[in-house]
Design a protein around this nucleic acid. Structure first.
Length: 581
DNA sequence: GCCGTTTTCGGCCCGACTGTTTTCAGTCG
């Protein structure tokens, strides 16, 4: 675990403990904000500290800088230890129960000496909560439901699941009479890598009708809340969906509000307030006069900003960029000319070469790279040298039939445990596009693994490093890796880094991809397609690239076939020149 | 505890829903 992640966790604990003690809410917010900053900071925290530049982190002033220093030098935070010692046991577990906030924790621990979720459950069943002020049957039921949620382990949806559900629900809501506009909002619209609750927004002059349709729809397995403009349901699969209905005139303001992120909105409202304006989900107001509300772009304009794409609304510099007129030019679906990481039945893919190629053409691409696994990866039926030679011949024959479309000869070559590649250079030299990936020896130590990947990048035939950190969302942590060193090496060797668009990988992550982008590294979205339907994961890859502030000029997918091949050739020639000199 | 185009003090985003209340506190996003 990284120092900043660990420290951020501790700051959040401090915030919780201060909150239970009923301290100044703004002081509490300061700890949460600093935690957020630390999570986002990708660089070397110790280096930042020794340079005396900790206060450059947003929300870190002299006090918090001191606490960070204390943690870095001693590994401890006296303040947290002090607070924790005086806090009742079980507070963090209790706080995690939906419906239990700081005030309730205080009541439960002080009056009933409850110190765990288990004890809370027993106290409810025994009727002991009735002794507390404001606790009646309904509240008990809600707490029991909340307990069920935490004990079952509350899961976030992967983005593909959320998108599929959202597409269905949006189509359904659009058919409800009186629903004039429908959009996903929240983290889905921002294309975050996983989604907690799905947020949907509807414009309608007849909100009751939309509410009724929603809460009686086939998706509504359980209804958590249903007011006049807001409702929450849980689907049979346990996915929570929140719906908000607003009048058409407020649609833009509501969409802005419900898209978030929370931090982005807080900053935007502060900005509005400094200009004497008030911003809420109904519009931008000066006094009681509404200046903007119907369209999202009008809302931003009213507070003096250009429209900001949802994917970068994370309070990660986008507001400053917008104010300075320096918003990034983000890649769009129409910019994509090809996909690079595609498997067929030659290794572990589900569909045959011709079908996969036809499907790629049908998507309107100008080129695709077929990249089946290399010989060492037996579990994925990695191809022997003879077999990839045969595949290459077949692809060459296919290419003879196409105009304006080309299948690139490729491979996903294993990076062996010492950093050599799984095919000899004589084979790699005959390929157009080489994805080099780690699939074995994942437990190597950080220095070894870093050296291994850097060595692979030094091979002139390696075009891109596949799923660079190896993480599987919800399944496997990234391997120990000095990502900054990998990014530097990618830059120095003219090797691209993959944005693997497989929904449980999304690797690089958005934050890491942003750092690579800032370092001037070329990136390449690869869908890691194992069946034709996976081509659609390009949508996730695009979302990831946009979240990382990536534009078409830094994405190999957006190059023409000629420019792409020229870019690959330059690395090969530079390496050749270096060897000759 | 942070921060500054209302600057070194005095602000700090804003509203819906629930359950319990008869005007609101707590929680959530």
């Amino acid at each position: 675990m990284s120092a900043q992640h660990d420290l951020a966790e501790r700051f959040l604990q401090i915030a919780d403990l201060l909150e239970i003690r009923g301290e100044n809410p703004f002081r509490i917010r300061a700890y949460r904000r600093a935690a957020e900053s630390l999570e986002r900071f990708g660089g070397d925290l110790a280096a930042l500290a020794s340079a005396g530049r900790l206060r450059e982190l947003a929300g870190v002033g002299s006090d918090l800088a001191q606490r960070i220093e204390e943690y870095l030098t001693t590994g401890r935070l006296a303040m947290l230890e002090d607070l924790a010692q005086r806090a009742p046991r079980g507070v963090f577990d209790l706080l995690a129960v939906p419906g239990v906030g700081p005030k309730t924790v205080r009541l439960l621990t002080e009056r009933l000496k409850i110190g765990s979720v288990r004890e809370l459950e027993r106290a409810i069943t025994a009727g002991r909560l009735r002794r507390l002020p404001g606790f009646q049957a309904k509240k008990e039921q809600n707490l029991l439901k909340g307990i069920a949620v935490v004990t079952k382990g509350r899961e976030r949806m992967t983005l593909d699941v959320a998108l599929a559900l959202a597409d269905e629900l949006v189509a359904f809501l659009k058919r409800v009479p009186g629903a004039t506009r429908v959009s996903p909002a929240g983290s889905l619209r921002r294309m975050r890598e996983t989604i907690g609750d799905l947020d949907l927004l509807v414009a309608s002059a007849r909100p009751q009708r939309v509410m009724k349709a929603f809460t009686t729809s086939r998706w509504a397995g359980r209804i958590l809340a249903a007011g006049t403009t807001k409702a929450s349901i849980v689907t049979a699969d346990g996915l929570q969906v929140d719906l908000r209905v607003v009048e058409p005139a407020a649609y833009g303001a509501a969409l802005q509000y419900f898209t978030g992120s929370k931090e982005h909105n807080v900053r935007l409202r502060e900005l509005a307030a400094r200009r004497g304006l008030k911003l809420n989900e109904y519009g931008v107001f000066r006094g009681t006069r509404r200046l903007a509300s119907r369209e999202e772009a009008e809302v931003y304009r009213a507070v003096g900003l250009p429209w900001i794409p949802p994917e970068i609304r994370e309070d990660a510099g986008e507001l400053d960029a917008a104010q300075a007129g320096r918003l990034p030019h983000l890649v769009e679906a129409a910019d994509i000319r090809g996909d690079f990481h595609i498997h067929t039945t030659y290794s572990d893919g589900h569909d045959g070469l011709e079908q996969v190629v036809d499907a790629g053409r049908a998507r309107g691409y100008r080129h695709i790279a077929i990249c089946d696994h290399s010989q060492s990866l037996r579990v994925a039926h990695g191809m022997s040298v003879a077999r990839i030679r045969e595949q290459m011949a077949r692809i060459r024959a296919l290419n003879g039939r196409f105009r304006g479309f080309r299948v690139l000869l490729g491979s996903e070559v294993d990076i062996l445990e010492d950093g050599r590649l799984d095919y000899p250079n004589a084979v790699l030299a005959d390929l157009d596009f080489v994805v080099a990936s780690v699939h074995s020896g994942l437990r190597q130590d950080r220095a070894t693994l870093t050296r291994r990947i850097v060595r692979a990048m030094q091979n002139p035939y390696v075009t891109v490093v596949g799923h660079p950190t190896g993480r599987r969302i919800g399944l496997r942590e990234p391997y120990a890796l000095d990502l900054e060193a990998v990014i530097r090496a990618a830059h120095d060797t003219s090797t691209a880094l993959e944005l693997n668009a497989s929904p449980d990988r999304l690797d690089l992550s958005d934050a890491a991809a942003r750092r690579a982008r800032d370092a001037g590294v070329m990136l390449a979205i690869g869908t890691d397609t194992h069946r034709i339907a996976h081509y659609a994961h390009m949508r996730l890859g695009l979302g990831l690239a946009r979240r990382a502030w990536v534009g078409p000029s830094q994405l190999l997918n957006c190059q023409t076939t000629g420019d792409l091949l020229a870019w690959i050739r330059r690395k090969r020639q530079a390496a050749g020149a270096a060897r000759r000199s």
